[in-house]
C-alpha cells in the first residue's frame, strides 16, 4: 500500500513536470508547476521529511506560484501584442541528452541507495549531539547550531538575490497596481487570513525547536500574508528604502552575525550560540527578514507603502 501511494505521487510528479515544461500555453505551464510544487509537499511528507513538506507548502502555495503568475501578468501587460511564447528550440540532441541524464541519475542514485554503507557519520553525530543543544528537532539543530554558517550564508544569498533584483527593478515599471480589494470577499479573506499567517508563523517558529517548522517556513508563511496584502492592493510597491524597511530586511543577518561575533569576545568559537534564547532570537529575526525579502521580491520594488486613500 505504501508503494501504491508513493508510486502515485511519483507518477503525478513526473506527469506534472512534463506538463509544466511541454504544454502549449504558459499559463497552463504555471498551473502545472504550482501543482507540481504542492505534490512535492506530498512527496516530502511521504519521504518522512515534514520540515521540507512545510517549506514546500509555504513556498509553493504562498510565494512561488503567485510570483510566477504575477510575472506572467507583467509580461502580458508590457507587450500585449506579442505572441505569448517564443518558438521552442528544435534540437535533436535534447531527447538523447535528457535520457542520458535521467539514466545517469537513475544509475548513480540506485547505486547510492543500494550500496552497503556505513551510516551517515555526520547524521549520527547530529543525533548524538542534539541533546546538548536543548533542541529536539534535529533539522533545526543542524541549521541553527551545528551548521549555522550555512544558514547564515543562505540568508545572505537571499539578500543578494533581493539586491540583485533591486538592480533591475525600475520605478517606472513598478508593478501595475494590482486589482484593488474592492470585493467584500477579498476583504473578509484578508481580515481572516493575514492575522492568521502571523499566528501560524510564530507557531511554526516556536515549533521548530521540537517538531517540524522553523524560521524559513515561518518566514514564508508570513511572506504569504504580505503577498496577499499586495495582491489585494492593501500594500503597494514604493520606491526608496526607508529605514523601517531596510532594518527588518537585514535584521536576520545582523542579529545572527552580531551574536555569532560577540561570542568570540568571550573566547567562544565563532558562531557558537550562547543558548536556546539566542536560537529563538536569531530565528525570529531571520523570519522577519525572510518574509520581508520575499514580499519585496514579489512586489518588485524596494519598498512598500499602504494603499493610497
Amino acid at each position: 500500500m505504501n508503494l501504491a501511494v508513493d508510486s502515485l505521487i511519483g507518477l503525478g510528479l513526473v506527469a506534472l513536470a512534463w506538463q509544466a515544461i511541454s504544454g502549449r500555453s504558459l499559463f497552463r505551464g504555471i498551473v502545472m508547476f504550482v501543482v507540481f510544487g504542492l505534490t512535492m509537499a506530498l512527496a516530502w511528507a511521504r519521504m518522512g521529511a515534514p520540515d521540507l513538506a512545510l517549506a514546500e507548502a509555504a513556498i509553493g502555495a504562498g510565494v512561488t506560484g503567485a510570483l510566477m503568475l504575477v510575472a506572467l501578468r507583467r509580461l502580458v501587460q508590457l507587450h500585449p501584442d506579442q505572441p505569448a511564447e517564443p518558438k521552442r528550440a528544435r534540437s535533436r540532441l535534447a531527447l538523447p541528452i535528457a535520457l542520458l541524464a535521467a539514466s545517469l541519475v537513475a544509475v548513480i542514485g540506485l547505486g547510492a541507495v543500494s550500496v552497503d554503507r556505513e551510516p551517515g557519520r555526520a547524521g549520527v553525530a547530529v543525533m548524538d549531539n542534539l541533546a546538548e543543544t536543548g533542541l529536539s528537532n534535529p533539522i533545526t539543530g543542524v541549521l541553527l547550531v551545528f551548521r549555522n554558517l550555512d544558514t547564515l550564508l543562505e540568508v545572505a544569498v537571499l539578500l543578494a538575490a533581493f539586491l540583485a533584483a533591486l538592480a533591475v527593478f525600475r520605478d517606472q515599471e513598478q508593478a501595475p497596481a494590482p486589482p484593488r480589494g474592492d470585493l467584500p470577499l477579498v476583504g473578509a479573506l484578508l481580515a481572516i487570513i493575514v492575522p492568521l499567517t502571523i499566528l501560524v508563523s510564530v507557531h511554526l517558529l516556536l515549533a521548530g525547536s521540537h517538531e517540524p517548522g522553523g524560521a524559513f517556513q515561518a518566514g514564508a508563511v508570513l511572506a504569504a500574508g504580505g503577498v496577499l496584502l499586495i495582491l489585494a492592493g492593501r500594500l503597494q510597491p514604493a520606491s526608496g528604502m526607508p529605514l523601517a524597511t531596510a532594518l527588518p530586511l537585514v535584521l536576520g543577518l545582523l542579529v545572527f552575525s552580531v551574536i555569532g561575533l560577540a561570542m568570540m569576545l568571550t573566547g567562544a568559537p565563532l558562531l557558537a550560540l550562547p543558548g536556546l534564547w539566542a536560537v529563538y532570537l536569531i530565528e525570529a529575526a531571520m523570519m522577519i527578514s525572510i518574509a520581508l525579502t520575499l514580499v519585496l521580491l514579489f512586489a518588485g520594488a524596494s519598498g512598500l507603502r499602504r494603499e493610497r486613500p
Binding site: F27, V34, L38, A41, A45, P50, A53, L54, A57, A58, A61, G62, G65, A66, L69, V70, L72, R73, V76, Q77, P80, P178, P179, V186, L189, I193, L196, T197, V200, H203, L204, A207, P212, G213, V221, A224, V227, L228, L231, A232
Partner: peptide, 21 residues
Amino acid sequence: NVALLFVMLAAVISLAFFGMP
C-alpha cells in the same frame, strides 16, 4: 500543519489568478 498551510494559502493563488488579464 502542512495541511493548515495549504488551506490557508490556497487563496493566494486564486487571488493572483484573479489579477490576471
